[in-house]
Simulated assay, not measured.
Amino acid sequence: MDARSAVLARAREALARSQRGPARPIPRDYIRVGEHAPGSEPVVADMVDKLEDYDAVVRTESDDAGIAEAIDELLGGAGRVVVPTGLPEAYRRAAARSGRELIEDSPEQPIATLDLDRVDAVVTCSRVGISISGTIVLDGEPDQGRRAITLVPDRHVCILEREAIMPTVPQAVDVLGEHPTRPMTWIAGPSATADIELVRVQGVHGPRNLGVVIAH
């Protein structure tokens, strides 16, 4: 028997074994619901702590003026900023401060026309946050835009509503499960890797700088 036939035979044998009986039940003994309510002070504090541990810069704001100031501050010296078409107008105006040029992303527009390699930053909203892991999830809605605009620019400023911060992953998945076909991007701090000689390098697979505004 040649090598190809041997591999296929083993695959057929493994598939046959897998069909001989019902699959073992998946254990569900992990924590599903956190001790504190979504968006509560302890949950927000845990989220901030995890994000800062990932080297993200976090601002917590309770009014629109503070949110706008935070967006402007976190964008820093960015000159060209891409924004999704559904970004709230107040956030758009904040991103345009200091003479910044805004480039609007629209699903009807070919992504190549945005010239993302020449864009300094992106501003988006988000769908949900997970405090236990410091993760932010985007699901491609109009206030978040397409995945590409959050992966190429060097800086990402993300607005996260405090009521959308869930204590656990299952609670967040329940929210995301309401629209399971939306494209999702899970963010846990700035993009980074330590694959080469265990030296941490940021900005490998996404933005090198992440700024988060926890709003209201």
Rank of each mutant, 00 (worst) to 15 (best):
A121H: 05
A121R: 07
A121M: 07
A121G: 08
A121L: 09
V122Y: 01
V123F: 11
V123S: 04
C125A: 10
C125K: 06
C125H: 05
S126R: 03
S126E: 02
R127G: 09
R127C: 02
V128A: 11
V128C: 01
V128Y: 03
G129S: 05
I130T: 00
S131M: 06
S131Q: 07
I132K: 15
S133Y: 03
S133C: 03
S133V: 04
G134Y: 04
G134C: 02
T135A: 08
I136V: 09
V137L: 06
V137I: 12
V137S: 04
V137Y: 01
L138S: 05
L138A: 10
L138Q: 15
D139S: 14
D139W: 10
E141A: 13
E141V: 03
E141L: 12
E141C: 05
P142R: 12
P142L: 05
D143L: 05
D143C: 13
Q144K: 09
Q144H: 10
Q144V: 00
Q144D: 00
Q144N: 07
G145M: 03
G145I: 00
G145A: 08
R146G: 05
R147F: 05
A148M: 15
A148I: 07
A148F: 10
A148Q: 13
A148S: 07
I149C: 09
T150C: 15
V152C: 02
P153W: 10
D154G: 13
D154H: 15
R155A: 01
H156R: 09
H156I: 01
H156L: 11
H156P: 01
V157F: 10
C158L: 11
C158H: 07
C158I: 09
I159P: 00
I159R: 13
L160P: 01
L160F: 03
L160E: 00
L160C: 07
E161S: 12
E161A: 14
E161G: 09
R162E: 11
R162H: 11
E163C: 12
A164R: 12
A164T: 02
I165G: 04
I165Y: 03
I165S: 01
M166P: 00
M166Y: 02
P167V: 07
P167C: 04
T168E: 04
T168Y: 02
V169N: 03
V169Q: 07
P170S: 13
P170L: 14
Q171A: 14
A172Q: 00
V173T: 10
V173D: 06
V173M: 15
V175M: 06
V175P: 03
V175N: 01
L176P: 00
L176S: 04
E178A: 15
E178Q: 14
H179F: 11
P180Y: 11
T181I: 09
T181F: 14
T181A: 10
T181Q: 12
R182D: 08
R182H: 14
P183K: 12
P183T: 06
T185M: 10
T185K: 13
T185I: 00
T185L: 15
